[in-house]
């Protein structure tokens, strides 16, 4: 082993520990290793008890989000060489309860995702039979919502959001962005159905526009933009309601 590096990893075992500890491991330094490679090396060669989630190793399954020196990152997409020779501190994503070691609990997100109704909702009489083919959608219409459809649910945005950490009732960046993804889809009629939650206190108005959700997003989804744009359209809704109450939709 020529050059090595140190990883300081957050350890917590619910069956044994009341408080987490940090454990330091020495791993080989390889130019083309990502942090996940080093963690896999630890699991395989040094300490089989380390628990974490991972799968695709290509930044698309969204499993391996971790705090790397305090910043939320996909551990399969950051290289050791960017930190060498300093020690790297690895922790589970902040803002979530820790199940064990680097594994955090994401039940809360799964509930919120369901509540936001992230699927096409169409007016009943406007459903097109399959035999009549696809709904037409121009490339321009597709471009309107496409960025928001790129979310891999990796939870980095929640970990970057101090609002969520302070008050977990906040629906949060990814779920709202996914709601907006459908709101902006030309095939969808579900905005009103989603609005109740999106425009609620736990929804967009909780956001103070720190903007870090977008900064850490590995897929350029820009959830901060999704939320601010929802604020604008909700405000317009409100003005419309107040100024022309008779114009209210059925």
């Amino acid at each position: 082993m020529a050059e090595t590096m140190k990883l300081e990893i957050f350890r917590y075992h619910p069956e044994k520990d009341n408080e987490p500890t940090f454990q330091t491991y020495e791993v080989p330094f390889l130019e083309d290793w990502v942090i996940l490679d080093a963690i896999n090396y630890i699991k395989d060669e040094i300490d089989g008890t380390l628990s974490y989630r991972w799968s695709c190793q290509m930044g698309v399954c969204g499993s391996c989000g971790m705090m790397i020196n305090g910043v939320p990152k996909l551990s399969c997409a950051v290289f050791l060489k960017d930190y060498y020779p300093d020690k790297i501190r690895v922790e589970p994503l902040t803002g979530f309860p820790v199940e064990r070691d680097l594994i955090f609990q994401m039940d809360d997100f799964m509930t919120k995702l369901t509540e936001i109704q992230p699927y096409i909702i169409r007016n009943k009489d406007e459903e097109k039979p399959l035999d009549e083919g696809e709904y037409l959608q121009t490339p321009a219409e597709l471009a309107r919502f496409k960025p928001y459809s790129m979310c891999i649910n990796c939870m980095l945005c929640y970990a970057a959001c101090p609002v969520y950490a302070l008050d977990s009732t906040f629906i949060g960046p990814a779920a709202i962005a996914l709601g907006q993804r459908y709101n902006m889809d030309s095939r969808d009629h579900g905005r009103d159905a989603r609005q109740e939650l999106i425009a609620s206190h736990e929804g967009i108005w909780e956001c103070t526009f720190v903007g870090e959700c977008s900064a850490v997003c590995p897929k350029d989804v820009d959830p901060a933009a999704a939320i601010q744009r929802a604020k604008v359209s909700s405000t317009i809704d409100w003005f419309k309601d107040v100024l022309i109450p008779w114009g209210k939709k059925k």
Binding site: E15, K16, P20, G70, V71, T94, G95, V98, P162, A165
Partner: peptide, 21 residues
């Protein structure tokens, strides 16, 4: 011990931890 998740404290000084904050 009974299995339980660990809730990390989120100190009031959170905003001092990173430059963007």
């Amino acid at each position: 011990k009974e299995m339980s998740t660990y809730h990390r404290p989120f100190p009031n000084t959170w905003w001092l931890k990173r430059k963007p904050y």
